[in-house]
Design a protein around this nucleic acid. Structure first.
Length: 575
RNA sequence: CGGGGUGUAGCGCAGCCUGGUAGCGCAACUGCUUUGGGAGCAGUGGGUCGGCGGUUCGAAUCCGUCCACCCCGACCA
């Protein structure tokens, strides 16, 4: 490719609305252009990288025995009503109507469609196991798209769905996909971790996430130092040993605390440590465990209590309470407890209360009094309040013991892959059945496996960049090599030699970009660094005289001279 | 959805408070010079000042309203 015929529009200036390095560099290098919030056009340069990533994903999926299909991005409401998710999904799903007024959505995921497809394709248990995948544009109407392609509304995703005869076979399919994902991320060449995850509203049991480690990641990961345990903080259980609860030593006492609503204020006013306080929060729970509409539509209030210095984990709470959980509005809290948020406490509370493990071993603690402007101190479980129902409700913290005995380290990650064992949730809801070896109907066990292809592009840049621009791993670089041709027009002989070199390398199958633009060298070096081509050759009259080219690896400080020949260049590329 | 902020040339911004000919830098285009780390000089083109409405002799500027985008939070593959 000749740069004089390739639209490379780069910018020195950092776009005002880009916050993180990958977003800034993708805009500065012209890989993407914003069309609307969370919606982007990929330029020829950007698309080359995106397709490199997609190509690696496709090869490894094929190698793992999955079969590529293409399903529609526009999907009819009926399928989503069958699975119950038409109502469940909420505004994240982009809905529309056709000219007849029929409901459709732009597919955020494809469990329903693939199951529909299998209803007509699966005739016998002998076809199992089967794994189908596609690489396709998804749309999820995120509340807050940000960071360019990292959290876009429209994005490219590889989604795969496996079908097995039983749970044991599903576990094997899952393990195969897990291995394929490891191969994919190893080939791309990023530093990643596999962590235990919550399965969210997709449903199902076992689920793990693949995270690219980066400080700008939106997820917090709990990784055991020197151990095997790794989990998204959302799903990391607190299992550390609890101390014996001390015996009460104080009398219960009410203290006036006008205007005090936060733990910090309580501590300041009463001169106590946050570890000695109990914070009580009221949650509104929507939906229930049951399948019936009444349970799904129900709302109930539940209180949870944590030690003052701990953070509530809404995922844990919602898993334990069986429904969608959110902090209740202030008015709701007041109506239910007689206190505004900040003064709620367990004593005399009339709604069900769950207490975090660590809060359950407190003694002589400080808590809200369920009255305005008042707190209690010297409160004790068993004496002033009933013995608590205990649960694990908080985020794990750095330095705490991990379940495997190691010490928890917190790291930030970008979720680029998620694999689930779904079980029979969708196959049962959408009535997918095949005859088994005795002629009975078998409901297949499903797994689903997603990779955020476009997100990987951003995530790799987060890990691979310097002050001058991107440092692509060779696996997904838009070009392997850039030749900066200096002054080819001044000396026809040099110009011809550069042309010959370019042609020979190109015909050898190397993705080479010839910078033949009539710009000053500095400008072109800066562009080469910005777009991150891994190998750079400078060819000009100076070296041509002595039969040398200048070679430089992106990211290395020093350039070196090599012989003016395609073979010498190929040697540099090889290692 | 709550809070904050911003909309002026392709990009980055000034002008607005105190109403009166729409500016600067970069980019683009033309010419000449220049050619090893984002060149110099000269010239050219490009604007519904986010939209609509109001006040006024006159609105980028004041008022109202709507929209878009960004940040923080809540929420979420």
């Amino acid at each position: 490719m000749r740069l004089s015929q390739f639209p490379l529009i780069t910018s020195k200036e950092i776009p005002a609305d880009a916050e993180i390095p990958s977003h800034q560099l993708m805009l500065r290098s012209g890989m993407i252009r914003r069309v609307a919030a969370g919606i982007y056009t990929w330029s020829p340069l950007g698309l080359r990288v995106l397709q490199k990533v997609a190509g690696i994903v496709r090869e490894e999926m094929n190698r793992a025995g999955a079969l590529e299909v293409s399903m529609p991005s526009v999907q009819p409401a009926e399928l989503w009503q069958e699975s119950g998710r038409w109502e469940q999904m909420g505004p994240e799903m982009l809905r529309m109507q056709d000219r007849h007024g029929r409901d459709f959505c732009y597919g955020p995921t494809h469990e329903e469609v693939v199951t529909h497809f299998m209803r007509s394709e699966l005739k016998s248990y002998r076809q199992l196991p089967l794994n189908l995948y596609q690489i396709q544009t998804k749309f999820r109407d995120e509340t807050r798209p940000r960071f360019g392609v990292m959290r876009a509304r429209e994005f490219l995703m590889k989604d795969a769905y496996s079908f097995d005869a039983d749970a044991q076979s599903l576990a094997q399919s899952y393990a195969q996909m897990r291995a394929a994902y490891q191969a994919i991320f190893a080939r791309i060449g990023v530093d990643y971790r596999i962590v235990a995850a919550d399965s969210g509203n997709i449903g199902g049991s076992a689920s793990e996430e693949f995270h690219v480690l980066a400080d700008t990641g939106e997820d917090l990961l709990a990784i055991s130092e020197g151990g095997d345990f790794a989990a998204n903080v959302e799903a990391a259980p607190c299992t550390g040993p609890l101390p014996q609860r001390p015996a009460p030593t104080q009398q219960r006492e009410e203290v006036a605390t006008p205007g005090v609503v936060s733990i910090a204020q309580v501590c300041e006013r009463l001169g106590c440590a946050p570890e000695q306080t109990l914070k009580t929060m009221v949650l509104e729970v929507h939906g229930g465990q049951g399948e019936d509409a009444d349970a799904a539509a129900s709302r109930r209030l539940v209180a949870v209590a944590l030690r003052g210095d701990h953070t509530l984990n809404l995922i844990k709470a919602s898993r334990m309470l069986g429904g969608d959980v959110a902090l209740a509005e202030a008015e709701t809290v007041h109506a239910a407890t007689g206190a505004w948020p900040g003064a709620v406490g367990p004593v005399g509370l009339e709604i069900p209360l769950w207490v975090d493990r660590d809060a359950s071993v407190l003694a002589d603690f400080v808590c809200g009094a369920n009255r305005e402007d008042a707190h209690l101190r010297g409160v004790n479980w068993g004496r002033d309040v009933a013995e608590p129902q205990v649960a694990d409700l908080r985020d794990i913290g750095a330095g705490e013991p991990a379940p495997d005995g190691g010490r928890v380290q917190l790291k930030r990650g970008i979720e680029v892959g998620h694999i689930f064992q779904l079980g029979q949730k969708y196959s049962a809801a959408l009535q997918l059945g095949v005859p088994d070896d005795s002629g009975q109907t078998l409901t297949p066990h499903m797994g689903c496996y997603g990779i955020g292809v476009s997100r990987i592009v951003g995530a790799v840049i987060e890990q691979c960049h310097d002050a001058d621009g991107i440092l692509w791993p060779e696996s997904i670089a838009p070009f392997a090599l850039i030749i900066v041709a200096l002054n080819p027009k001044n000396d026809p002989e040099v110009g011809a030699a550069i042309e010959a070199l370019y042609t020979e390398l190109r015909e050898a199958g190397i993705e080479v970009l010839l910078d033949d633009r009539d710009l000053r060298p500095g400008h072109r070096f800066a562009d080469a660094d910005l777009i991150g081509v891994p190998h750079r050759i400078v060819a000009g009259a100076r070296g041509h005289g002595s039969g040398t080219l200048e070679y430089k690896r992106r990211g290395e400080a020093e350039a070196r001279d090599i012989a003016w020949s395609a073979d010498a260049v190929r040697e540099c590329l090889a290692g």
